[in-house]
Amino acid sequence: MVLGTYKNAVSARATDKAIQKVSQDGGIVTALLSYALEEKIIEGAVVAGPSETPWKPEPLVALTSDEIISAAGTKYTFSPNVWALKEAVRSYGLEKVGTVAIPCQLQGIRKTQSYPFATRFVADKIKLIVGIFCMENFPYASLQTLINEKLNSSLSLTEKMDIGKGKFWSYTQDEELALPLKDTHGYEQAGCNICKDYTAELSDVSTGSVGSADGWSTVLTRTDAGESIFTKAVDAGIIETKDIADVKPGLPLLEKLSNSKKTKADAEIKSRIELGLPVPF
Protein backbone atom coordinates (compact mmCIF):
# COMPACT_ATOMS: atom_id res chain seq x y z
CA MET A 1 0.00 0.00 0.00
CA VAL A 2 1.56 3.20 -1.14
CA LEU A 3 0.29 5.32 1.80
CA GLY A 4 0.65 2.57 4.42
CA THR A 5 -2.30 1.18 6.34
CA TYR A 6 -4.84 3.82 7.36
CA LYS A 7 -8.40 4.03 8.54
CA ASN A 8 -9.52 7.42 7.24
CA ALA A 9 -8.16 10.22 5.11
CA VAL A 10 -9.42 13.81 5.35
CA SER A 11 -8.37 17.35 4.68
CA ALA A 12 -8.35 19.25 7.97
CA ARG A 13 -7.26 22.29 9.92
CA ALA A 14 -7.21 23.55 13.48
CA THR A 15 -10.06 25.93 14.28
CA ASP A 16 -8.02 27.92 16.79
CA LYS A 17 -6.89 31.18 15.14
CA ALA A 18 -3.80 31.36 17.37
CA ILE A 19 -2.66 27.99 16.03
CA GLN A 20 -3.51 28.88 12.43
CA LYS A 21 -1.29 31.93 12.71
CA VAL A 22 1.88 30.05 13.62
CA SER A 23 1.42 26.58 12.20
CA GLN A 24 3.07 25.28 9.06
CA ASP A 25 -0.08 24.00 7.42
CA GLY A 26 -3.39 23.19 9.07
CA GLY A 27 -1.88 23.14 12.54
CA ILE A 28 -2.94 19.53 13.05
CA VAL A 29 0.17 18.56 15.00
CA THR A 30 -0.11 21.44 17.42
CA ALA A 31 -3.88 21.11 17.81
CA LEU A 32 -3.84 17.37 18.39
CA LEU A 33 -1.01 17.41 20.91
CA SER A 34 -2.57 20.33 22.79
CA TYR A 35 -5.94 18.61 22.81
CA ALA A 36 -4.41 15.35 24.05
CA LEU A 37 -2.75 17.34 26.83
CA GLU A 38 -6.03 18.99 27.85
CA GLU A 39 -7.85 15.68 27.78
CA LYS A 40 -5.07 14.13 29.90
CA ILE A 41 -4.41 11.50 27.24
CA ILE A 42 -0.81 12.69 27.56
CA GLU A 43 0.97 14.61 30.33
CA GLY A 44 3.50 16.27 28.07
CA ALA A 45 4.84 16.20 24.54
CA VAL A 46 8.26 16.19 22.95
CA VAL A 47 8.32 18.70 20.11
CA ALA A 48 10.95 20.45 17.99
CA GLY A 49 11.31 23.67 19.95
CA PRO A 50 13.27 26.77 19.07
CA SER A 51 16.91 27.22 20.09
CA GLU A 52 19.23 30.21 20.22
CA THR A 53 20.38 29.59 16.66
CA PRO A 54 17.79 30.58 14.04
CA TRP A 55 16.11 27.59 12.38
CA LYS A 56 18.07 25.05 14.38
CA PRO A 57 15.48 23.19 16.44
CA GLU A 58 16.06 21.71 19.86
CA PRO A 59 13.88 18.96 21.31
CA LEU A 60 11.57 20.43 23.94
CA VAL A 61 9.60 18.57 26.58
CA ALA A 62 6.44 20.70 26.48
CA LEU A 63 4.16 20.58 29.50
CA THR A 64 1.69 23.28 28.41
CA SER A 65 -0.22 24.16 25.25
CA ASP A 66 1.75 27.39 25.03
CA GLU A 67 4.98 25.44 24.88
CA ILE A 68 3.55 23.15 22.21
CA ILE A 69 2.49 26.21 20.19
CA SER A 70 5.97 27.70 20.58
CA ALA A 71 7.29 24.75 18.55
CA ALA A 72 4.85 25.04 15.65
CA GLY A 73 6.20 25.32 12.13
CA THR A 74 8.53 23.11 10.10
CA LYS A 75 12.26 23.31 10.58
CA TYR A 76 14.01 21.59 7.71
CA THR A 77 16.89 20.22 9.74
CA PHE A 78 17.48 17.65 12.48
CA SER A 79 15.62 17.71 15.72
CA PRO A 80 16.52 14.52 17.61
CA ASN A 81 13.13 14.35 19.33
CA VAL A 82 13.50 10.65 20.18
CA TRP A 83 16.48 11.49 22.39
CA ALA A 84 14.30 13.71 24.58
CA LEU A 85 11.67 11.02 25.14
CA LYS A 86 13.85 9.51 27.85
CA GLU A 87 14.25 12.95 29.37
CA ALA A 88 10.46 13.29 29.41
CA VAL A 89 10.00 9.99 31.22
CA ARG A 90 13.01 10.12 33.53
CA SER A 91 13.65 13.74 34.46
CA TYR A 92 10.09 14.99 34.06
CA GLY A 93 8.55 11.78 35.39
CA LEU A 94 5.83 11.69 32.73
CA GLU A 95 3.77 8.51 32.59
CA LYS A 96 2.05 9.35 29.30
CA VAL A 97 4.04 11.07 26.59
CA GLY A 98 3.09 12.37 23.18
CA THR A 99 5.44 13.37 20.39
CA VAL A 100 5.73 14.49 16.79
CA ALA A 101 7.98 12.44 14.54
CA ILE A 102 9.16 12.20 10.96
CA PRO A 103 9.21 8.65 9.53
CA CYS A 104 12.78 7.75 10.52
CA GLN A 105 12.10 8.89 14.09
CA LEU A 106 8.97 6.78 14.13
CA GLN A 107 11.04 3.81 13.06
CA GLY A 108 13.39 4.35 16.01
CA ILE A 109 10.52 4.67 18.49
CA ARG A 110 8.48 1.76 17.18
CA LYS A 111 11.51 -0.51 17.14
CA THR A 112 12.12 0.22 20.83
CA GLN A 113 8.46 -0.60 21.50
CA SER A 114 8.58 -3.97 19.77
CA TYR A 115 12.08 -4.79 21.04
CA PRO A 116 12.69 -2.75 24.22
CA PHE A 117 16.17 -4.14 24.92
CA ALA A 118 17.59 -1.23 26.85
CA THR A 119 14.60 1.06 27.31
CA ARG A 120 13.28 0.05 30.69
CA PHE A 121 9.86 1.59 31.30
CA VAL A 122 10.17 4.15 28.53
CA ALA A 123 8.73 2.59 25.39
CA ASP A 124 5.32 1.77 26.85
CA LYS A 125 4.81 5.34 28.08
CA ILE A 126 4.66 6.80 24.59
CA LYS A 127 0.93 7.19 24.06
CA LEU A 128 0.49 9.33 20.99
CA ILE A 129 2.73 9.87 17.99
CA VAL A 130 1.68 12.38 15.38
CA GLY A 131 3.71 11.53 12.29
CA ILE A 132 4.54 14.11 9.64
CA PHE A 133 5.15 13.45 5.97
CA CYS A 134 8.76 13.80 4.94
CA MET A 135 10.46 13.74 1.56
CA GLU A 136 13.94 14.51 2.91
CA ASN A 137 15.77 16.45 5.58
CA PHE A 138 18.80 18.75 5.47
CA PRO A 139 21.93 19.21 7.57
CA TYR A 140 21.96 22.70 9.10
CA ALA A 141 24.91 23.68 6.91
CA SER A 142 22.82 22.79 3.85
CA LEU A 143 20.11 25.17 5.03
CA GLN A 144 22.74 27.86 5.34
CA THR A 145 23.81 27.22 1.76
CA LEU A 146 20.26 27.24 0.43
CA ILE A 147 19.17 30.39 2.25
CA ASN A 148 22.38 32.40 2.46
CA GLU A 149 24.11 31.50 -0.79
CA LYS A 150 21.47 30.32 -3.20
CA LEU A 151 18.71 32.73 -2.18
CA ASN A 152 20.99 35.57 -1.01
CA SER A 153 18.96 35.88 2.15
CA SER A 154 19.73 35.09 5.77
CA LEU A 155 18.44 32.60 8.27
CA SER A 156 17.85 35.22 10.93
CA LEU A 157 15.54 37.18 8.60
CA THR A 158 13.64 34.09 7.51
CA GLU A 159 10.16 33.76 9.00
CA LYS A 160 8.96 30.62 7.29
CA MET A 161 10.30 27.92 5.03
CA ASP A 162 8.23 25.58 2.98
CA ILE A 163 8.60 22.96 0.29
CA GLY A 164 5.76 22.78 -2.17
CA LYS A 165 4.75 23.12 -5.82
CA GLY A 166 8.21 22.02 -6.93
CA LYS A 167 10.01 24.79 -5.02
CA PHE A 168 11.82 25.46 -1.79
CA TRP A 169 10.26 28.67 -0.42
CA SER A 170 11.66 31.13 2.05
CA TYR A 171 9.61 33.99 3.45
CA THR A 172 11.00 37.05 5.16
CA GLN A 173 8.91 39.92 6.45
CA ASP A 174 8.73 41.53 3.02
CA GLU A 175 10.02 39.00 0.54
CA GLU A 176 8.97 35.70 -0.92
CA LEU A 177 11.93 33.74 -2.30
CA ALA A 178 11.80 30.51 -4.26
CA LEU A 179 14.41 27.98 -5.30
CA PRO A 180 13.61 25.23 -7.80
CA LEU A 181 13.70 21.93 -5.90
CA LYS A 182 16.31 20.53 -8.28
CA ASP A 183 18.73 23.14 -6.90
CA THR A 184 18.33 21.62 -3.46
CA HIS A 185 19.27 18.13 -4.63
CA GLY A 186 22.63 17.07 -3.36
CA TYR A 187 22.07 19.01 -0.14
CA GLU A 188 19.71 16.56 1.57
CA GLN A 189 21.25 14.10 4.02
CA ALA A 190 22.54 10.87 2.48
CA GLY A 191 20.56 8.69 4.91
CA CYS A 192 17.32 9.98 3.34
CA ASN A 193 18.19 8.48 -0.02
CA ILE A 194 17.23 4.97 1.12
CA CYS A 195 14.13 6.08 3.05
CA LYS A 196 10.96 4.53 1.65
CA ASP A 197 8.45 6.09 4.02
CA TYR A 198 6.87 9.34 2.87
CA THR A 199 3.67 9.45 4.90
CA ALA A 200 4.87 8.35 8.37
CA GLU A 201 3.36 4.91 7.99
CA LEU A 202 4.02 3.85 11.59
CA SER A 203 2.32 6.79 13.30
CA ASP A 204 -0.97 6.94 15.19
CA VAL A 205 -2.06 9.86 13.02
CA SER A 206 -0.10 11.17 10.02
CA THR A 207 -0.30 14.65 8.60
CA GLY A 208 1.35 16.78 5.96
CA SER A 209 0.65 19.51 3.48
CA VAL A 210 0.57 17.61 0.21
CA GLY A 211 -2.92 16.95 -1.12
CA SER A 212 -4.70 19.82 0.63
CA ALA A 213 -5.13 23.54 0.00
CA ASP A 214 -2.85 26.16 1.61
CA GLY A 215 -3.62 26.47 5.29
CA TRP A 216 -5.04 22.96 5.36
CA SER A 217 -3.47 19.57 6.03
CA THR A 218 -3.96 16.07 4.73
CA VAL A 219 -4.59 13.68 7.63
CA LEU A 220 -4.45 9.88 7.71
CA THR A 221 -5.62 8.12 10.87
CA ARG A 222 -3.87 4.80 11.36
CA THR A 223 -4.05 3.11 14.77
CA ASP A 224 -7.11 2.76 16.99
CA ALA A 225 -5.61 5.28 19.41
CA GLY A 226 -4.96 7.72 16.58
CA GLU A 227 -8.41 7.35 15.10
CA SER A 228 -10.02 7.80 18.49
CA ILE A 229 -8.24 11.00 19.45
CA PHE A 230 -8.67 12.55 16.02
CA THR A 231 -12.41 11.84 16.04
CA LYS A 232 -12.72 13.29 19.53
CA ALA A 233 -10.87 16.43 18.50
CA VAL A 234 -13.18 16.87 15.51
CA ASP A 235 -16.28 16.27 17.65
CA ALA A 236 -15.00 18.80 20.17
CA GLY A 237 -14.67 21.39 17.41
CA ILE A 238 -10.87 21.65 17.79
CA ILE A 239 -10.38 20.48 14.21
CA GLU A 240 -12.59 21.00 11.15
CA THR A 241 -12.51 18.59 8.23
CA LYS A 242 -13.41 18.31 4.56
CA ASP A 243 -13.95 15.16 2.59
CA ILE A 244 -10.62 14.48 0.89
CA ALA A 245 -12.49 13.34 -2.24
CA ASP A 246 -13.73 16.92 -2.74
CA VAL A 247 -10.28 18.45 -2.29
CA LYS A 248 -7.77 19.21 -5.03
CA PRO A 249 -5.16 17.84 -5.64
CA GLY A 250 -6.14 15.31 -2.98
CA LEU A 251 -4.87 11.79 -2.47
CA PRO A 252 -3.76 11.12 -6.07
CA LEU A 253 -0.89 13.59 -5.70
CA LEU A 254 0.07 12.17 -2.30
CA GLU A 255 0.10 8.67 -3.75
CA LYS A 256 2.18 9.81 -6.69
CA LEU A 257 4.83 11.43 -4.46
CA SER A 258 4.87 8.51 -2.05
CA ASN A 259 5.32 6.13 -4.93
CA SER A 260 8.15 8.10 -6.44
CA LYS A 261 9.94 8.26 -3.08
CA LYS A 262 9.70 4.49 -2.78
CA THR A 263 10.90 3.91 -6.34
CA LYS A 264 13.88 6.21 -5.92
CA ALA A 265 14.82 4.62 -2.59
CA ASP A 266 14.57 1.14 -4.10
CA ALA A 267 16.99 2.15 -6.84
CA GLU A 268 19.44 3.60 -4.29
CA ILE A 269 19.14 0.50 -2.10
CA LYS A 270 19.88 -1.67 -5.09
CA SER A 271 22.96 0.29 -6.04
CA ARG A 272 24.23 0.27 -2.45
CA ILE A 273 23.83 -3.49 -2.26
CA GLU A 274 25.77 -3.78 -5.50
CA LEU A 275 28.55 -1.77 -3.89
CA GLY A 276 28.54 -4.22 -0.99
CA LEU A 277 27.11 -1.71 1.48
CA PRO A 278 24.65 -2.63 4.25
CA VAL A 279 20.99 -1.52 4.13
CA PRO A 280 18.47 -2.24 6.86
CA PHE A 281 15.46 -2.47 4.55
Binding site: F78, P80, V82, L85, N137
Partner: peptide, 20 residues
Protein backbone atom coordinates in the same frame (compact mmCIF):
# COMPACT_ATOMS: atom_id res chain seq x y z
CA UNK B 1 31.72 3.04 11.63
CA UNK B 2 28.57 1.07 10.82
CA UNK B 3 25.91 3.76 10.52
CA UNK B 4 27.37 7.21 9.84
CA UNK B 5 30.25 5.94 7.70
CA UNK B 6 27.80 3.81 5.75
CA UNK B 7 25.50 6.73 4.84
CA UNK B 8 22.69 5.37 7.00
CA UNK B 9 22.28 7.86 9.85
CA UNK B 10 19.22 10.12 9.84
CA UNK B 11 19.85 11.94 13.11
CA UNK B 12 16.74 10.46 14.70
CA UNK B 13 18.23 10.38 18.21
CA UNK B 14 17.21 6.84 19.16
CA UNK B 15 20.78 5.84 20.02
CA UNK B 16 21.13 8.72 22.46
CA UNK B 17 17.78 7.85 24.01
CA UNK B 18 18.77 4.28 24.80
CA UNK B 19 22.33 4.92 26.02
CA UNK B 20 22.29 4.07 29.75
Amino acid sequence: TNIVNKALCTGCGTCAMVCP
